[in-house]
Design a protein around this nucleic acid. Sequence first.
DNA 1: CATGAATGAGATTTCATTCAT
DNA 2: CATGAATGAAATCTCATTCAT
Lengths: 204, 204, 204, 204
Amino acid sequence: MARTAGSHGPKTMEAIRKAALTLIYRKGYEAITLRQLADAVGIQPGSLYNHVRNKQDILFDLVHDHMTTLLAEVEQAVPAEAPPLVQLEAFIAFHVGYHITRREQVFIANSELRSLEPGNHAAVVALRKRYEGVLIDVLRRGAADGSLRADDPTIAAYAILSMLTGICSWYQPSGRKSADQLVNLHRDLILRGIVVQDPASLAC
Amino acid sequence: MARTAGSHGPKTMEAIRKAALTLIYRKGYEAITLRQLADAVGIQPGSLYNHVRNKQDILFDLVHDHMTTLLAEVEQAVPAEAPPLVQLEAFIAFHVGYHITRREQVFIANSELRSLEPGNHAAVVALRKRYEGVLIDVLRRGAADGSLRADDPTIAAYAILSMLTGICSWYQPSGRKSADQLVNLHRDLILRGIVVQDPASLAC
Amino acid sequence: MARTAGSHGPKTMEAIRKAALTLIYRKGYEAITLRQLADAVGIQPGSLYNHVRNKQDILFDLVHDHMTTLLAEVEQAVPAEAPPLVQLEAFIAFHVGYHITRREQVFIANSELRSLEPGNHAAVVALRKRYEGVLIDVLRRGAADGSLRADDPTIAAYAILSMLTGICSWYQPSGRKSADQLVNLHRDLILRGIVVQDPASLAC
Amino acid sequence: MARTAGSHGPKTMEAIRKAALTLIYRKGYEAITLRQLADAVGIQPGSLYNHVRNKQDILFDLVHDHMTTLLAEVEQAVPAEAPPLVQLEAFIAFHVGYHITRREQVFIANSELRSLEPGNHAAVVALRKRYEGVLIDVLRRGAADGSLRADDPTIAAYAILSMLTGICSWYQPSGRKSADQLVNLHRDLILRGIVVQDPASLAC
DNA sequence: CATGAATGAGATTTCATTCAT
DNA sequence: CATGAATGAAATCTCATTCAT
């Protein structure tokens, strides 16, 4: 990681954020120390407090920023007036694309919720619920117009989100699948399932 | 939580395990202290060391026990000689059923891998790979005999496992869905997808 | 100061109290560090927390103990049924005697009130008011029966208490005045004042 | 408290002094931080160093200024050639008047001596001794000419000073006693004591 | 087998102070 | 002369772990 030793000005805050992201992603919020973080930034532990109120704020900033960006972007990515199936495909493509380019943020936002203090926790959970709501709405409209099969749109949404977010835990940009391939793979799985439809059973 | 204050004999070890399970599930391994654990058990922190070598061992025991049980049971639950589709359905039913009755173990085994020391980490990851291997094998055989559509059985297996394991993070035994309903819901989603197949498009 | 290195058992708490008394008396509560205190006791700083909840508690214990003892003893020292003048003399003798043998406690209880957290502060101030009340009552009764001249018993009591407590700030047990001499000196000053009454002016 | 936000020019130094006086009076020298002081002044902590060499100097300035002013004024207030009794009355009036109008300075000068570094401490104690010397001299001369009863003029002086200075710790300008009343009350106490002289015992 | 007390390492945080801009 | 950011030292407190009793 870049070491901006003795860094000055507003760059330091950015360096702290970047270093915190990597460190928390790799070791977890509780497991990292501010000494390690300061080392990674190239300053003294105490100097962190010129930019941050306390350790908790570092985590909250990271998670909160991530969630607001995610929300802002999903609303642009999913066309408001399109049919549910189109929206669903857009959502899948957006979610997979966004998540594999921000694996750290996503992972932290999911796994370190527990480490947020009550107030912060509530704020983040609220944002998360809004994001989940986007998908739930799509499924609900699809169920209503008969294009999607979702007896329980909420549970189906959770299932889809779990599946897609899980990609983060094994995906490597250098791996053998491109982002597009991943999107297609998961879109097919979600839309059509894994069973090969027996043509005979479908014959007239 | 049951507080076995001043517990004696071999019960103490069991009480430690139970308390550790609950505490780690709720707060995370790094976040709990042995003092909290001792409190929950009803003994002094120092007394823990009559039963356990150190904090790490508590976590490893929990995770390792869980993984070996999981493996032993999945092999009994999935019929060895059945066709892949039948095996897949058996796997889904087993996985969902097992996971919702052991939410804490599952959650810990997934989220606290990071907190395991290298040796322990490797041991658990190996067990996990064997468990994933069961599903991957099923998908692979299904792809081979044309009954399942899985271009990439590994990724499909990860996707399915992520989806199913995600249930743990929101499931409440007192909720509105029974275990059976959950199994059906997820089986349908995995096998047939979410899109309603247009009969017209399938007509000859 | 005695250094009970590696001290064990209930003696440690006593050693902490004694060392804290001396250190706080000499440097002030805010100025001392727990490292210094631990050094004086002969243990590690962290070990203090086996006996004490935090730094504030050390101060509060000291002050609170002092005030309760003071109150208990003053009630025994001042005869309940005696005439006010006798009571006043008893109070002076008691106060001077008690204070010069416990200079540290007295000084701390007066000068470190500011360092007490609100709750603790209130508790100590309440005790202090009760002690002051003893003297105020004596003066009030003396004013009532005409034996003492105290237009404002409260202010007079404060004046007397300030004068007597001030002794602590310069008294040395090895000094040239005995405790008895001090008592007499101050009793005379309080009772008769400093002016030599001109016999002529009193003649009939 | 007045907040001279972003103050400029020579006013800043004055603002620092005023804020320091109030803060140290309320919380004590060791307990305040330069951040708090800077806040109160309306500047950044680093900016303090454009006006002050360090924290210690702030305290020393305050105490030293106070002591020199006190000394200068007491010499004007106590008539050099008057009889001891008249001088004593003048001293009492001056001391009470001066102290109740500068409660903060007086309190700090008495309670924060401990926080002065050796050199500064010595300087202030020397000034203090000179001030005490004024009263001691009066008493000594009174004892010499038979007008005052002071076996030990030093101790008597300490006693009187303690009594008078104690006023600062409870006096409120808005209270029920005027400054003049306070002076009279304490002068009577010091000169004539608290006992009502039994006329009978004085009769010829 | 439990306990109370000790340890030593280290964590987060605070603070006085410095200095380039 | 003010500022923002850095430093380095230190402070309080926590924690896993050990061990005599």
